[in-house]
Design a protein around this nucleic acid. Structure first.
Lengths: 144, 144
DNA sequence: AGATATTAGTTGATTTTGTAACTAACAAGC
DNA sequence: GCTTGTTAGTTACAAAATCAACTAATATCT
């Protein structure tokens, strides 16, 4: 067996992960794209800010492992939608402290609720034990 | 708990899936991108052809759930790299039968070996039972 | 202090993707 | 036979991602 038995693409973990990721992302996009015209990176930046309060762009890059140009553009877009505001730090004027506006917080709350509901819907497909294993496996892979 | 407890992005399944998928894809890209200058869709198309012999573009779209424009471009790219050839079917001149060239088959064999090795490396991170659960969960999610 | 190196963040050019309109070949209805 | 409809695949244009070069502010080294 094995060495020259052509394996199924579905058995190839990177492929399986991609298909699963795409399926769930597509579904959840409807919430933030349809309702707020947001892009995925925007949603992520919004999320980090909503979750952790004030952050600099750099910190968002690190926490989310997102490239700085993506963050830069997402921040600009969110600012234009009046969902966040920037303040240059007086101590070091290279840093910009980002913070959600009242409006941004409301959007965050709304999207969080949707996210939680969607996550629950997904999780409902599995037994408690499967969920534990799945999440453990995913975080271990992501940490590679 | 719950309704307004801000959940961690890492616990959000679509996010966790994306991070894991990106981590593994990035790693495997090096093989086909670095060595053969191929894009992901090209590798997938190559794979389907290597795996199943001759197929039309349509069949590849269906098997891989890839949009036809992506397949069309990947086919053009692979053709230019002399990794596949097309033959118009005389019965119905709308169909083009795609087939790997000798060169294409060699690349397929090589990439399959790499893919299998990489998959094994990933799988090695988990117990047999975890692997089963993981794959089962992923395919169930992808089927949504 | 003044030259050099780093760091935060932005901008621009190129590449890739996604969406929609298009061509060519065939099928069906009348 | 000719209009209408479908199907396979391509192409054109817009949206987005990637990569490299850039600006501005601070830190470091001598």
């Amino acid at each position: 067996m094995s060495d020259n038995s052509p394996f199924d693409l579905r058995d190839f973990l990177p492929y399986a992960l991609n298909q699963a990721a795409e399926a769930t992302s597509r579904a959840f996009q409807q919430y933030y794209k349809g309702k707020y015209g947001m892009l995925r990176t925007e949603w992520r930046v919004l999320f980090h800010l909503g979750r952790h309060g004030s952050l600099t762009a750099k910190e968002i890059c690190e926490r989310g492992s997102i490239h700085k140009t993506k963050v830069s553009r997402a921040v600009a877009a969110l600012e234009q939608k009046r969902l966040l505001s920037r303040k240059t730090l007086p101590d070091d004027r290279r840093h910009e402290i980002l913070q959600l506006t009242k409006n941004g917080s409301a959007v965050f709350t709304d999207l969080c609720a949707s996210a939680r509901a969607y996550d629950a819907e997904l999780a409902g497909q599995f037994t408690a034990e499967e969920q534990v294993v799945l999440r453990r496996c995913l975080s271990r892979i992501a940490a590679l």
